[in-house]
Amino acid sequence: MDILSFDKEAFLEYVNRENHKLEIAPFVDSDYSNPERWDADLHPLYIRELDIVDYDGRDSSFQYYLISNSNFKSRCEYYISLTKDMNLDEINDLIDSSEKDGILNRRKIHEKLYGMKESYRVSFHIIAFEYRCILEAVKLKKFSQKLQSGIINSCHRCLASSYNPNYHNS
């Protein structure tokens, strides 16, 4: 049996280049993707788990886009007042019913936006925004990490779907 030989130097150079792809990707070190460069009042809103990298290896700064929405503050205040006297089970019920019939139901939102340019993407982005605002209310109540983690995961999935380059194939 012959053992295949390969250029070890070239292979190591390739591996090194691939390992550092994220550091050299465009936009990764931008003001948008670096919360230390944000205004001080935006720092508490940053959640590392919501950062995702798009399909081209670029930091798309999804977290920044959500919290820079002009309606973010008022929508957070809405959810804070809505959940003010709720316990954990009631908040879970609110989220479940919103996913079935309300603002977190992508099919319903997509139907309302149908015919609009890129309604698929916009519907996921709207839902991600709502999850992010709900997360602020839940963080204030200091509920379990499990609930917060579930909201973060749902928001993350919506953001990833909203920027999926193959959205038109689904």
Rank of each mutant, 00 (worst) to 15 (best):
I80E: 06
N69H: 14
Y64T: 03
D7T: 14
Y64R: 13
P44A: 00
D59R: 05
L4G: 01
P35V: 05
S98V: 00
M1F: 08
I103Y: 07
P165W: 02
S161W: 00
G102K: 06
I67F: 10
E13R: 15
D54W: 14
S74G: 01
D2A: 01
I151R: 00
R106I: 07
S81Y: 10
K112F: 04
S70W: 12
G150A: 08
F72N: 06
S70R: 12
L88P: 00
E136M: 07
Y79I: 04
K21S: 05
K108P: 02
R121N: 14
I151P: 05
D54M: 13
A40Y: 12
S81P: 04
L140G: 13
I109M: 10
D101L: 11
N16Q: 12
H125D: 15
F129L: 08
D41T: 13
N166A: 15
Y46C: 05
N105I: 00
V15D: 13
I126E: 09
C76P: 09
E36P: 05
L135Y: 00
I109V: 14
K112W: 01
D2E: 08
D39R: 11
S30T: 13
S123Q: 02
N87R: 11
S30A: 12
I109Y: 00
M1N: 10
L66R: 04
C133G: 11
I95M: 01
S97R: 09
E18W: 08
L22H: 14
I127H: 07
S123T: 05
G57L: 11
S154D: 04
N153I: 03
E36K: 14
K141E: 05
D7L: 11
F124A: 03
F129P: 02
S30M: 10
Y32W: 06
N166R: 15
L22R: 15
P165H: 03
K142G: 02
S149E: 15
N19P: 00
F11E: 14
V15T: 13
N16T: 12
Y79D: 03
E136Y: 05
L113A: 05
H43Q: 11
K142C: 07
K100F: 12
K141F: 03
N34I: 08
F124S: 06
N153D: 05
Y120G: 03
L94P: 05
A137R: 02
E18G: 01
A160W: 09
V28S: 03
F129V: 03
E90A: 06
D51F: 04
F124C: 12
S81M: 13
S123A: 11
E49C: 10
S74W: 01
F143W: 04
L82V: 04
I151A: 07
Y32T: 07
A40I: 15
C155I: 06
S97M: 09
K141R: 10
H20K: 08
A10S: 15
R107Q: 15
C133W: 02
A128Q: 10
L113W: 03
L42N: 00
S162T: 08
E13L: 15
K108Q: 09
K84P: 02
S119K: 02
E90P: 04
K108H: 06
Y64M: 08
E118S: 09
L50R: 12
